[in-house]
Every structure is written in C-alpha cells, then in structure tokens.
C-alpha cells in the first residue's frame, strides 16, 4: 500500500475518534444535556447529580475505553514483533496473569507492596514485568511459535490456581471486590486519577515511537537485527518495560481484558498491509481505541436488558478471531 493511502486511512480513523467518543458518552441510560457536560468539566458543581454522573462516571469510563483499547493493542503489537509471533499478546503470554496474581495478593491477603494511592499500578506493573521477563526467558529456549503460546496458557492456569487458593481464604468483602475487578470494567477510575493515567499512557506511546527503528528491524528476528547493529538486550528490555507499563496500568484499573491485545494488532496489519511500525503504532492506537469505545458503547446501550462484563464481551469476539487467525496463518 502506498504511503499516501496509509496516511489517508490514519486521517479517517482520527476523524472517527471524536465521533466514537461522542457516541460512547451519549449511549448511557440517562439522557444528559450538552450544557451539563460543559459545566461538569469546566464549571463543576458537586451538588448537581447530573454533573457528578458525568464527571465521575461518563468521562472516566469513556477515557478508559480509549486508553485500554489503544494501550492493550499497542502492547500486543510490541509483543508480536518482539516474539515474532502473530498470536502473541499481553493476555495470551500471561502478562495480565502476572499482574492479576499480584493484585489478588494485595487485594485479598492484605500484603501490600506499596502503600501509596497508586499502589495498585505499582503492584500490577511488577506482576506484569515479572511475567514478561519470565516469558522472554522461556521464549529463548523454545523453537516453535505454538510452544510459547502453550507456555503462556500454562502460566495462566498456574496463576489462576494460586489466585483461587487465595480466594478460598479471602473475606467476603475483599473477595467481592476482586471478583468485580476480574470481570473487567472501565468504571473503576475517578476523574482525579485520569491525569496520571493519561500522562503514563501518552509517555508510553511516545516511547514506542522512539523504538520504530529497532522494531522495524526486529521483524527479521533478533539474530539478523543484531547483525544490522541493533542493540538486542537494550531493545528487548525497553519493549518489555513499555508493554508491562501499558498492560500493568490497564490491568490495575480495568481488570483483565482478554484478546484485544492479540486481535487488534493483527487486524491493523491486515488493514494497513505494511510492516512499518511508524504506521502500525498509529493504527493500533486508533483502531484499538475505537474498538473498545464501540464495544463499551454497546454494553452501555444493552445495560437495561442485559449486563455483559467487558472481559466476557471481548472474549466472545476475540476467541473466534484467534481460531480464524490460526487457520489462516499457521499451516
């Protein structure tokens, strides 16, 4: 595909973004006026129920749909390039499981790694990072692409077993909050937490753009990349670090969200038909953000009749997509 038409697709996707954000804000059950939105952001009155609803629920939820969709897709793209495996992703490779395990420990046993307000991010980050490096260590000793995914699956089962052991000992209140968290939700974030989440998110995207050159060479594999002068250890560390930051941040606040990180990078490549990561980064951020905004808009619209957990919905779409990719790619 020509660079010009790629640029056109990116501009179209950018144009769709405000529309999707608008639709998401409007698809809640209670109808709200534009002026309430305006006031909730710029002239907030905490006595006005509508304004509180907007400020504490609608806006954070919309922003988190965008951040989670974009962030997980970007993390997935990084994993797929690093592992040279189109089926890799933060969820499949157990990055989420690592974060989940430490979060389960900190939510249900009272053993806290960090005391601060953002303790949960730190905890998830360490879990995600640990799982990432474990996978890297294992990947270097495996020959086949499928083995790595099976190891990820085993790691997931192993951590799930540990989590259920913790659950069986947990008190009712903490068990409930952990169960709610594990269903995946975009509603846990407060308006005040948004600035730090957005800052970390934007910093991560910016650092991925700095990695465009090594990422483009890594598609040839680590050995060839090294013989083209790419510093492999450093690149690997940076990629895993950014992935863990994105996946950890999102897992901490939204719970595990399955398949987005695996499916969207593939969808982006199919649509863009390029291996140039400068374009793929844009694509993943935009398509991932649009996808989760869309999914969550549907969840909001159905809320009256049917309440679907986010993680269930993404799995419902993601799992058949994995089967499709398996049939298409791995012969």
């Amino acid at each position: 595909m020509k660079d010009r038409s790629l640029r056109l697709i990116i501009i179209c996707l950018l144009g769709l973004l405000p529309i999707a954000m608008y639709v998401h804000l409007m698809s809640g059950q209670i109808e709200l006026s534009y002026s309430s939105y305006w006031k909730a952001i710029f002239d907030f009155n905490n006595k006005d129920t509508y304004q509180v609803l907007i400020r504490e629920f609608r806006i954070p939820r919309m922003m988190m749909a965008l951040v989670a969709g974009a962030g997980l897709s970007l993390a997935g793209m990084l994993m797929q390039t690093l592992f040279k495996n189109p089926l890799a992703g933060p969820y499949v490779l157990g990055i989420n499981s690592g974060a989940s395990l430490l979060i389960a420990v900190s939510m249900m046993t009272g053993i806290q790694l960090f005391q601060s307000n953002f303790g949960l991010i730190g905890t998830a980050l360490i879990g995600a990072m640990g799982a990432g490096f474990l996978m890297m260590f294992v990947a270097q000793r495996l020959k086949s692409q499928i083995s790595l995914l099976l190891v990820g699956l085993m790691f997931g089962s192993f951590t799930a077993a540990l989590v259920s052991m913790i659950e069986s000992k947990a008190g009712a209140e903490s068990l409930k909050s952990f169960t709610m968290w594990s269903m995946g939700s975009l509603q846990q974030v407060t308006f005040e937490q948004l600035p730090i989440i957005l800052t970390l998110f934007i910093l991560s995207i910016a650092s991925v753009f700095l990695l465009v050159k090594p990422l483009n060479v890594l598609v040839l594999g680590e050995k060839s990349a090294s013989m083209l002068g790419i510093h492999i250890q450093r690149t690997r560390f940076l990629i895993l670090g950014i992935t863990a930051l994105l996946a950890g941040l999102i897992t901490a606040f939204c719970g595990p969200i399955a398949f987005v990180g695996m499916a969207i990078p593939n969808l982006t490549r199919m649509l863009f038909r390029t291996s140039n990561h400068a374009a793929l980064i844009w694509g993943n951020v935009l398509i991932g953000g649009l996808f989760l905004l869309g999914i969550d808009s549907i969840i909001q619209l159905l809320e009256g009749q049917l309440s679907i957990p986010l993680n269930a919905f993404t799995s419902l779409i993601g799992a058949p997509f994995v089967v499709f990719l398996l049939m298409r790619k791995i012969k």
Binding site: L210, V212, K213, N216, V217, V219, L220, L228, G229, I230, R269, F272, R273, T274, S275, N276, A278, K329
Partner: peptide, 25 residues
Amino acid sequence: FEGLEYLKVKDYIALGRTPHTDAFG
C-alpha cells in the same frame, strides 16, 4: 529467508541500510 507477510521487497532491502540511518531509521 522465508519472506514475511506485509513486508515489501523494497522495505526489506532498505533494512540493510540500518547501520547508516538515523535513530528513527
């Protein structure tokens, strides 16, 4: 080299310039 999906010949050959290009390739 078995070829890669969505990697064009010109982009593949251009990767040979990696040691000579700037930080963004």
